[in-house]
């Protein structure tokens, strides 16, 4: 079974082909092209969608070529049906629908964030982890029970990715800013006190964001100190929420997925925290931590094991789609 996955929820347009390999899968190809907004600006949904339209043919062609696969060898096509930016989601859905209707291939709409989780599980060979999903779209602690991914903690306002992006943009950086902030933060070990808001297993970043911005605007501290203080505070909050969820759920594995999983400092904090509780910890490999076609293709394979394909008329997209509202049948 070979599944083509199409991802287009935000800045990245990506296609991947995964071949079923026992219970797991082998990634035959994963090609991406990301929209880069101007410095100091965020993703403009219309501009990102235009980028995806222009990039789609090249990415799809490159992906099939890298996988040495013809479209005739594809057994199913999965696309990210949400959550994400409406105009961007529609591009992926249109490409998927066009291919499926012309070539008569079964089609599966999948949940983007569950794709992050399932690909992470497959690549790290984890069985029943507590999952920390940290990206631009999500900041959630999840564990699976009774056919659904259940939320054991989440952000009450902006996500960790948004916090880093918005703060980075105020410094004049271009999104995504996480990597750049981490690099700037390394220039200073100094820490300036910032609001720390952990509410049970939940976190709130809005106060931290405002305070960090004021810190820079005040001009009394350098960019490096501000970046370091922001990171240290935000990551400590995430670490504590994860630690609380770990103790509560008594899970023996912690899996970190999503774009911010690529952050080295966060990874090291979570690793040490997990060790304290005798818990195995792994992050999705950097290449597959952020948005990619593989997460969509792999979830397509899982869904095809348990569900019939969807009728073309029902291949919609949804900008807002809560992860914990999705029934998992595989």
């Amino acid at each position: 079974m070979r599944c083509l996955g199409i991802e287009s929820t935000a800045h990245t347009f990506s296609c991947a082909v995964i071949e079923e390999h026992g219970r797991g899968g082998r990634i035959l190809a994963d090609v991406r092209d990301a929209y880069v907004p101007p410095a100091g600006a965020g993703i403009h949904p219309r501009e990102a969608a235009r980028h995806h339209v222009a990039a789609s043919a090249g990415v799809l062609g490159g992906c099939l070529r890298d996988a040495s696969t013809g479209i005739g060898d594809i057994d199913a096509i999965a696309y990210a049906a949400g959550p994400g930016l409406g105009p961007c989601l529609r591009v992926g859905a249109v490409v998927a629908r066009a291919l499926c209707s012309y070539h008569g291939i079964p089609i599966y709409p999948v949940h983007h964030a569950i794709g992050h989780i399932e690909l992470g599980k497959m690549l790290t060979s984890m069985d029943d982890p507590l999952v920390l999903l940290v990206s631009g779209g999500h900041t959630m602690l999840l564990a699976f029970s009774d056919r659904r991914w259940r939320v054991f903690g989440e952000t009450l306002d902006v996500t960790l990715g948004q916090l880093l992006d918005q703060f980075g943009r105020s410094l004049g950086l271009a999104s995504p800013c996480g990597m750049q902030i981490e690099k700037i933060a390394r220039e200073s070990g100094k820490y300036c006190e910032l609001p720390y808001a952990v509410k049970g297993n939940d976190v709130s970043f809005s106060g931290l964001y405002s305070a960090a911005k004021q810190l820079v605007a005040g001009g009394s501290v350098s960019r490096a100190v501000a970046c370091n203080s922001l990171q240290e505070t935000a990551f400590a909050m995430i670490c504590e929420a994860a630690e609380r969820a770990l103790v509560l759920t008594k899970k023996r594995e912690l899996l970190v997925v999503g774009g911010v999983a690529a952050n080295v400092r966060l990874d090291s904090m979570l690793r040490q925290m997990s060790r304290r509780h005798g818990c195995k910890m792994a992050s999705a490999p950097i290449r597959y931590a952020g948005d990619c076609g593989s997460q969509i293709a792999w979830l397509g394979i899982l869904q095809s094991r348990a569900e019939a394909p969807v009728r073309l008329a029902d291949t919609t997209v949804s900008q807002s789609w809560r992860l914990d509202s999705v029934d998992v049948n595989y």
């Binding site: 009774d146 259940r150 939320v151 054991f152 509410k199 049970g200 297993n201 939940d202 509560l248 759920t249």
Partner: peptide, 12 residues
């Protein structure tokens, strides 16, 4: 809110 979250995740 926190208590309801814990019930629906921990005691589904």
């Amino acid at each position: 809110r926190l208590f309801r979250e814990i019930l629906s995740s921990g005691h589904a």
